[in-house]
Design a protein around this nucleic acid. Structure first.
Lengths: 122, 122
DNA sequence: ATGTTCCATCGTAATCCACCGATCAAGCAT
DNA sequence: ATGCTTGATCGGTGGATTACGATGGAACAT
């Protein structure tokens, strides 16, 4: 009873299952529209993005943007690599994968039917 | 190049695509371990759960629990149905479905490869 | 050394959040 | 009506977040 590969199957693969605290932390990091926007900006400029670039597209002070970036950094959602005089940021695909798994697991725990909706196209 | 049915396919089905604000709101609601726990409690006692029950398993004051419940309620993640002298709470599977879609869409926007990892088992 | 650019960090104000005890309305008894 | 239970909401406190401008250190130039 599982035609496609569902959320469930993605789940068991990463090492640590992620505790509620970790999940909550990441969720909180995702819990601000500006940070979602920052993530999208980073995603669109794959690996080529520094704080200034982000700031330019955001009508917010540089310090504020830097702070938001720090939140994402602390949550592990993005990575920093210093390069010369500036810092480049990029999305952590590893973490995103982990998150994907954890989130799938969470949903599954809450509502199995929802998490594997593929099986039930109605 | 897409054997199973991926996150992507789940996505296009709900009506409203959910704005960043909405997503952020829900994420923030999920951004506290106690609220995750409450959701799990509700899930385990399908539809039979009132505030007092939740409070009993949580070493927190009733008012605090009620407040957490309100956050989940406002985010649309759970539903209240008054019943006599008490209120029953249950998980909103509809909202969870929406969330699943929105989250999948978000991840896909951030990292297509991650969102549809099924195709790439390595 | 002097200057420039980039940006993390500090200091600060306003707002929000998490928690609590206390209160109060609603339902159901008696 | 009187009382009991349930739970939403109020008021308050302490700590976190969000925003800003200002500071300062690092990397590169000159």
């Amino acid at each position: 009873m599982s035609p496609g590969v569902s959320r469930a199957s993605i789940m068991r693969r990463q090492a640590a299952p992620m505790r509620d605290d970790d999940i909550a932390n990441i969720m909180r990091a995702l819990g601000h529209p500006v940070r979602l926007e920052i993530l999208r900006i980073l995603a669109s400029q794959q690996g080529q993005c520094c704080c200034g670039d982000v700031t330019e597209s955001l009508t917010l002070a540089q310090s504020t943007v830097s702070q938001h970036i720090k939140v994402l950094l602390d949550a592990g959602l993005i990575e920093r690599k210093a390069q010369g005089t500036r810092n480049r940021y990029c999305i952590s695909h590893d973490k995103l994968g982990e998150l994907n798994s954890a989130f799938g697991g969470l949903l599954e725990g809450l509502a199995p039917l929802v998490a594997s909706k593929e099986a039930e196209p109605a």
